[in-house]
Design a protein around this nucleic acid. Structure first.
Lengths: 145, 145
DNA sequence: TAAAGTTCGTTCGTATGCAAATGGATTTTG
DNA sequence: CAAAATCCATTTGCATACGAACGAACTTTA
């Protein structure tokens, strides 16, 4: 009979201590801040628009990989951005499977107008930490991706 | 004309550096580990069952608050756990709005059987970090909730 | 005690997010 | 070159998530 079995509390499961629970709660707080400070776009819509502005014309799946969304997810996001006129699709001449996605003039304007707010959202999310803690936290978080 | 306006790149938005993007990717990796190591239950279902086992009979909304899910979300989770026979509801005599939720015998058995796996999932998620880094990371993450 | 406020559970609508399957197009390889 | 593998976009099904609104029940307060 080993020690762990004598004291069941020693290796008990405590939800509040699990990294998955804390990640979910931190994400919830971040998304709540995002919605308050940038109500026009969801966090994933903004990320997709920003990446598309940065990359230029890109196929839908390649864009999805760039923003860490699978094919089924990026389709919905791209459809909603297209429905709002922020993104447009043009067929690829060389590869008949592909459509190039690109930001419209409207889409680029929205991105230019909201990028500062997005940076402020990052700042507000990290506000409970000081500069050193932020650097440490982001460095460790990056290792967990 | 201030410095920031001269060098637009200095305060440019880079998706990969934003805490929201990193939180989303870390959560994705964690959930992927969860699904692999504990395919029977989703992460939220396990969290709910675990908390219910810990708290004993609880109203649905109170349980939701304990696991950080709003009323609409906890309802779906509770419904699916009830459909699988892991949770049952009994009406409250004192408050006719309320149903007490509690884990069934089956539910408690599933929890006992899977709690170790859940701890292992936390370990695997944090595997890229050493012990000191884990302590630092969790302490900082907790400040962001 | 009556009005106001709160809480309970529920429903609707919208938006991720992923697994799995599909069909068509392109590339790789034997 | 033909078969195999890969890639593209799409669809279906399921499971979170949250805002908003709702009626019913309970509590607080004026």
């Amino acid at each position: 009979m080993q020690y762990e079995f004598k004291d069941k509390a020693a290796n008990a499961y405590k939800l509040e201590e699990q990294v998955g629970f804390l990640l979910r709660r931190a994400s919830q707080r971040h998304l709540s801040i995002f919605t308050q400070m940038l109500p026009d776009l969801t966090s994933t819509q903004f990320a997709t628009l920003a990446k598309l502005c940065e990359m230029g014309p890109t196929s839908q799946n390649a864009l999805g990989r760039a923003v860490a969304m699978d094919a089924a997810t990026i389709k919905g996001v791209a459809d909603r951005l297209r429905a709002r006129g922020l993104v447009e699709a043009t067929p690829d001449e060389e590869d008949r499977r592909r459509h190039y996605l690109s930001a419209t003039e409207d889409g680029r304007a929205v991105y230019e107008r909201t990028a500062q707010a997005a940076l402020a959202i990052t700042g507000e999310t990290l506000a409970p930490l000081d500069a050193d803690e932020i650097a440490t936290f982001l460095s460790l978080l990056r290792k967990l991706c």
